[in-house]
């Protein structure tokens, strides 16, 4: 569409040249985008002596040794524990978000009740509320419950649909589901609960999948709340475990640091490969269309 518009003005050899220049620029940008990732991968395969001396992407003598070294880098505790903790928290968050946000979104998108518009406006306002503002009182509160150093402060709020972004995403999605289906169900004698169960729930699968993927990735990458709520090494997640590398910039720890960094990004990368189209759409659908 826009492509045609562009070619209206410039045809012929200058247009072809421009096309080549464009490709060259795009590839250069791609290099800038991918270089840090490739460098991290390459460095994770370098030996301790090489990692400080050879700063290029490719290792001269690749070795896997950094991976087992990094895995057990921390005395008495392995990265396996961190991965397990991260996985448990991420999966619990996925389930909690999917269920609670779907329920709330149904109310906003499909039911008519007094005060709905006000609540909806408040929900939108909480989207813009920076999490750092709430962290102190929430911490005091959860500490009072004795929840600090357990996954509860990371999961329980999600059960209460506090991730407004996903509520909003699902509201937008449900608005695309034809209302005639609701009416048909109602005529068949369905209560609002029936409409939710038999109409909305089955049709909301794509929104649920998007929610699940983003929930997983964001929780997996999250640092701030995990840093605050998980002070014991045994309850560390992967990002908090990686933090232990911050203070050691000696040659011996660089390789293992890169290895564990690469490993920590692997689940996100796999999600990216499997769902890239959905991810890119997820960004769009909720915002621009709908």
């Amino acid at each position: 569409m826009a492509v045609q518009a562009a070619t209206v003005t410039g045809r012929g050899s200058s247009g072809a040249l421009r096309g080549v220049v464009r490709i060259v620029i795009l590839v250069a940008i791609l290099g800038f985008v991918l270089y840090p990732l490739l460098w991290m991968l390459g460095s994770s395969l370098k030996s301790p002596t090489e990692v400080a001396s050879n700063l290029s992407v490719l290792p001269t003598e690749p070795t896997w040794a950094n991976y087992p070294d990094g895995w057990s880098y921390i005395d008495g505790i392995s990265f396996g524990r961190f991965f397990l903790n991260s996985t448990v928290i991420a999966l619990a968050t996925v389930v909690a978000n999917a269920v609670s946000c779907l329920v709330a979104a149904f109310a906003f998108a499909r039911l008519h009740f007094r005060g709905r518009k006000v609540w909806f406006a408040i929900m939108i306002a909480t989207l813009l509320l920076p999490s750092h503002v709430l962290i102190i009182p929430q911490y005091v509160m959860f500490n009072y419950f004795g929840w600090v150093d357990t996954p509860l402060p990371l999961i329980v709020p999600r059960l209460l649909a506090t991730e407004a972004f996903f509520v909003f995403l699902m509201v937008q999605f449900m608005r695309g589901i034809p209302r005639e289906l609701d009416h048909a169900a109602k005529i068949d004698g369905c209560s609002p609960y029936g409409v939710f169960r038999y109409v909305i729930l089955p049709l909301s699968r794509p929104a649920l999948v998007t929610t699940a993927i983003f929930s997983f990735i964001w929780t997996w990458n999250d640092f701030f709340t995990q840093l605050v709520y998980l002070p014991s090494p045994t309850s560390y997640t992967v990002p908090i475990g990686l933090r232990l590398f911050i203070d050691s910039t000696g040659q011996t720890s660089l390789g293992p640091m890169f290895a564990m960094s690469a490993l920590s990004l692997l689940p996100v990368f796999l999600f990216f490969l499997a769902f890239q189209r959905l991810l890119v759409q997820g960004i769009n659908t909720s915002g621009l269309k709908g």
């Binding site: 005395d75 045994t234 720890s253």
Partner: peptide, 29 residues
């Protein structure tokens, strides 16, 4: 303070006061 050594063994935190309930907090924190 050692190298980033670390941790382990059971947590010394005793029985957590689980589930006092969010409402309890809202009322009387």
């Amino acid at each position: 303070a050692g190298m980033p050594a670390v941790p382990v063994h059971r947590t010394p935190v005793p029985r957590r006061r689980l589930f006092r309930g969010l409402i309890a907090a809202a009322v009387a924190l």
